[in-house]
């Protein structure tokens, strides 16, 4: 099933005009969904037998530039049953970003979301165990953001060298 078909399915199912599709000027078309709907849409995509996106390939945060007000969360889905793929994007504000978790749909989302939380500071609501995963527990800030300033001192060690 192509992204376009899935897009029209989603539009009719959720009757939400905020869902939009981007097909021009990109290699892989993607669907932009509002952050409030991502959990529901994910569940729909995973459970419907003709869609059956049973595999979350990748979940990444993207911060395009320091001047932007928003960041993106990108979901790369793949169906092991039908062998089609789909890219979903959620636009979140940089200030207090909140996205519902998709952990209950794909178990791997647990760690992926922790990583995005760790590096981008996006809070995944409803996540069972939202802690830092790659960085130390006492790290301050979220380093993959473009506006991140590295600390002068970490545990008494001078950071910039």
């Amino acid at each position: 099933m192509t992204t376009q078909e899935i897009f029209s399915r989603l539009q009719s199912k959720f009757e939400d005009n905020d869902i939009s599709i981007e097909t021009e000027a990109v290699l892989e078309p993607f669907i932009v969904v509002p952050s409030s709907l991502i959990a529901l849409i994910s569940e729909h995509l995973c459970r419907e037998s003709d869609l059956a996106f049973d595999s979350l390939q990748c979940l990444s945060g993207v911060d395009l530039s320091a001047s932007d007000e928003t960041m993106e969360i990108v979901y790369h889905l793949f169906s092991m049953t039908h062998q089609h793929d789909l890219t979903l994007k959620v636009i979140v504000p940089k200030v207090e970003p909140h996205v519902p978790t998709v952990e209950h749909v794909w178990k791997i989302a647990n760690w992926h979301e922790r990583e995005v939380y760790d590096l981008y500071g996006v809070v995944f609501d409803g996540h069972s165990d939202l802690r830092r995963i790659l960085l130390p527990d006492d790290w301050e800030g979220h380093p993959m953001r473009k506006d991140y300033k590295e600390p002068e001192i970490y545990r008494g060690m001078k950071v910039p060298y």
């Binding site: 909140h98 802690r131 527990d137």
Partner: peptide, 13 residues
């Protein structure tokens, strides 16, 4: 929901 996610942040060990 929100409170839960911040609470688990505290649970480090």
């Amino acid at each position: 929901m929100l409170a839960q996610s911040t609470a688990s942040e505290e649970r480090k060990f």
